[in-house]
Nucleic acid binder design. Structure first.
Length: 300
DNA sequence: AACCAGGGAGCGT
DNA sequence: ACGCTCCATGGT
């Protein structure tokens, strides 16, 4: 029997915190208001609200198939099973997990994720959001929204960006990242870099492939591998993660990259990427720094 | 008003 | 392998 045509659903799920998941800097196209988050998945308008027992999903049009939403939100993932794969005797990590209950990883579109993270270098979360928003408004396709809702725009496709000029991109306030993004778009369109094929590669090869792109180093490659592709051991190391790793596991002494990667590989296990996300979120929340500029403070 | 944020390229060591 | 500077922008 076919499921009914509906434009709103409740996804029954526990341990899913929308605020930390959509606001923590893994995806940049979501907008928060008083009671929920609005964004677009695969060019379709979506509004998500935390309700008792799950997540309320509102759409602009009726659908039968919700798999594009559940795939994005990864609501089929059993987070307890993931956490159970973390190292048993790591009290520091356990503590981080405890302070971040409900933090999840979502599964993003590879191009949008790659482009967003090319834009992320040396930028704070609010600024990345700002750039993504401007870029989408000016160069992305408009999305069908329910009556009364404000206009929304999908993140521009590689083809949409490839035909622009560096000047057009710089006008979206992305500075020196403009030539990187433009080249990535053009090389994606030309097929020189094949984003679908990357998902089928072995992790280290996929990483090398992404790092062929100008403006994509280890950190950004790992973000794309973790947030867009199914590589649960990808482990992005930014300054925050490096900081928390040296504190927790190296007595605050500095470690070279090689030793750090060796440690990560042998310590965190099958779902290292999730562990990274908990450590990242935890250290940012507890660093004592003013997070108002990061977009995290008003969310939590 | 200088300085900071903070990833990657490109350099020199 | 390591360290340094620059990049563009917006916030403090």
């Amino acid at each position: 029997m076919m499921p009914a045509l509906r434009d709103n659903f409740i996804l029954p799920i526990s341990d899913y915190d929308l605020d930390s998941t959509l606001g923590c800097g893994q995806a940049f196209g979501w907008e928060r208001d008083a009671d929920g988050w609005t964004g677009a998945i695969k060019g379709r308008w979506v509004r998500l609200t935390s309700v008792c027992g799950g997540i309320k999903v509102q759409l602009a049009q009726t659908v039968r198939d919700l798999s594009w939403v559940t795939d994005y939100l990864q609501t089929n993932v059993n987070i307890r099973e993931i956490i159970a794969t973390f190292p048993k005797n790591d009290e520091q990590l356990r503590g981080a997990v405890k302070t971040c209950v409900g933090l999840r990883l979502v599964r993003q579109d590879p191009w949008e994720c790659l482009a967003s993270f090319i834009l992320s270098s040396t930028k704070q979360i609010v600024q990345i959001r700002q750039i993504v928003c401007t870029l989408s408004e000016r160069h992305g396709s408009s999305v069908i929204v329910p009556s009364g809702e404000k206009a929304r725009f999908a993140f521009p496709t590689a083809s949409q960006l490839a035909m622009l000029s560096e000047v057009d991109l710089r006008a979206c306030r992305m500075g020196f990242r403009a030539p990187y993004l433009l080249a990535a778009a053009r090389r994606t369109v030309s097929g020189e870099i094949n984003l679908s094929a990357i998902g089928r590669m072995e992790l280290s090869l996929a990483r090398e492939e992404l790092m062929k792109l100008d403006g994509v180093g280890e950190k950004i490659a790992d973000c794309v591998l973790l947030f867009a592709y199914d590589f649960p051991t990808a482990f992005p190391v930014d300054v925050w993660v490096r900081r928390v790793l040296t504190q927790f596991y190296f007595h605050g002494r500095k470690v070279n990259n090689h030793r750090l990667r060796c440690f990560i590989e042998k310590h965190f296990g099958l779902n290292a990427g999730y562990a990274q996300q908990y450590l990242f979120h935890h250290v940012r929340m507890t660093s004592g720094k003013n997070l108002s500029a990061t977009g995290l403070a008003p969310i939590s």
